[in-house]
Design a binder for these strands. Structure first.
Length: 435
DNA sequence: TCTGATGATTGACG
DNA sequence: CGTCAATCATCAGA
């Protein structure tokens, strides 16, 4: 804009950028009269200073009016426009039609792929459309100040980043399956909100500038084309912010995803106390180690883990107990003794090990099963393994899970309260080869 | 570094 | 849907 001021000399002579006089713009007069010279000088002076005057002054309005009504104005105006056409525009015309930023395209593609942006689910496009509608449909005179605009941008950025951090920090250690979708949705929402705000700010500012230019175009040679160009320049400036927003969103999605994938495989041992509690429950319900939903919830609460973790634990425990009964028995012994001791301390000798239906029976039962009665009947064609050998049941696919847990071994009396565990039965033959 | 223990995941089954 | 069985991936102690 300032080039305009430099372009026009006080004498009314017109110079181009290099300062040469342009004779063809001498209004066609060989020798303009002094008065005419004076008039032209006046009007140019007014034109040059008009941008320095504040817009809302009544006085300024008055001056603008007189300027606009000046009889020389149309002629001068067209000349100025022509000059501009030939200088400024031709300079800038060369750098139009830039291809879209490839990085922005990449970001866009990723956001669409992740479902953060895109048409489905009322994505960013609709938010953008809303923002556009709001901005364009709104008052055109919503001329925000320059400082306002900066503050707004800063605000957008800040809000976005605080939100982002909130999501990143919120117990990132444990991301469960359901959480992932929820968090992605949160990111999507933040992104769309912020994108909307960004669009709105951009549009407001653009509108503001356009209005300003239109206003000034009445007194200065500003062509519609130039206004358009200014709009694209503004968009370009704003694009940096857009890029930042998209980049941050992409990062957030990537972080979320990697954390989620990590969390799936990460394994943290339960606390000793939790394991203790679980083991106590397991061994005290060894005849039927299938806790009800309520029991699971109770255990989960006591252990500070989730119900599904309790389920996992019992699933693992059962299968591993069966796989290695010998060892498990030692453990069972331990827990039986422990509880017995605890009970003895609390209640008295008679109440000891009340809950422990385990019984040395297990091992024996298990043996019996394999050795004798009905086990092989259930086991199809496979020849029954002689108990004494460690030929071991580990190859039994159909397994003993037929009617009851662990080959139905512990079914009977074991459940009874009274009987405490006698670790007497030790069956070396039970040892099964490790897989 | 090796190895057993262990929590989590997956596919099959009833 | 809950469970089993196999398997994976990591932890933790030697």
């Amino acid at each position: 804009m300032e080039d305009g001021q430099r372009m026009y000399s006080q004498q009314g002579g017109l110079t181009n950028m290099s300062g040469n006089v342009l004779p063809q713009y001498n209004m066609g007069q060989d020798e303009p009269s002094d008065q005419r010279k004076q008039e032209i000088g006046d009007i140019l002076q007014q034109i040059m200073t008009i941008t320095d005057q504040s817009l809302d002054e009544a006085q300024a309005r008055c001056r603008k009016h007189t300027l606009n009504c000046h009889r020389m104005k149309p002629a001068l105006f067209s000349v100025l426009c022509e000059i501009k056409e030939k200088t400024v525009l031709s300079i800038r015309n060369s750098q139009e039609e830039e291809p879209p930023d490839p990085q922005l395209m990449r970001l866009d593609n990723m956001l669409i792929a992740e479902g953060v942006a895109g048409p489905e689910k009322g994505g960013g496009s609709s938010a953008a459309a809303n923002a556009t509608a709001a901005a364009s449909g709104g008052q055109p005179d919503s001329a925000i100040e320059h400082s306002d605009y900066r503050a707004k941008l800063a605000q957008i950025r800040q809000i976005y980043h605080t939100e982002l951090e909130k999501y990143e920090q919120s117990d990132g250690s444990e991301i469960k399956n359901s959480d992932y979708e929820a968090k992605l949705a949160q990111i999507r929402q933040v992104y769309q909100t912020e994108y909307g705000k960004y669009e709105q700010a951009c549009n407001e500012f653009t509108t503001h500038v356009v209005n300003l230019l239109r206003e000034q175009s009445r007194t200065r040679p500003i062509a519609p084309k130039e206004i358009e160009r200014m709009v694209t320049i503004i968009r370009k400036k704003f694009a940096a912010i857009e890029m930042q927003l998209k980049q941050s969103t992409c990062e957030a999605v990537m972080i979320l995803r990697s954390r989620f994938l990590d969390a799936r495989r990460k394994r943290r041992n339960f606390s000793k106390q939790a394991t203790e509690l679980l083991n106590e429950y397991f061994y005290s319900h060894l005849s039927n180690p299938y806790p009800s939903e309520e029991a699971k919830e109770e255990l989960a609460r006591k252990c500070g883990i989730t119900v599904s973790q309790v389920s996992n634990w019992f699933g693992n425990k059962r299968i591993r107990y069966k796989k290695n009964i010998n060892k498990a028995q030692e453990e069972a012994n331990m827990y039986a003794a422990k509880t017995a001791a605890a009970a003895a301390a609390n209640v008295g000798p008679e109440g000891g090990a009340a809950g422990y239906n385990v019984g040395g029976g297990q091992a024996g039962m298990y043996m019996n099963l394999n050795g004798g009665d009905n086990y092989q009947s259930s086991d199809n064609s496979i020849t029954p393994h002689p108990r004494s050998q460690n030929g071991s049941p580990h190859d039994q696919k159909p397994d003993d899970s037929t009617d009851s847990w662990c080959a139905g071994a512990f079914m009977q009396g074991l459940d009874g309260e009274g009987d405490n565990y006698d670790g007497s039965s030790d069956e070396p033959g039970l040892k099964r080869p490790k897989i």
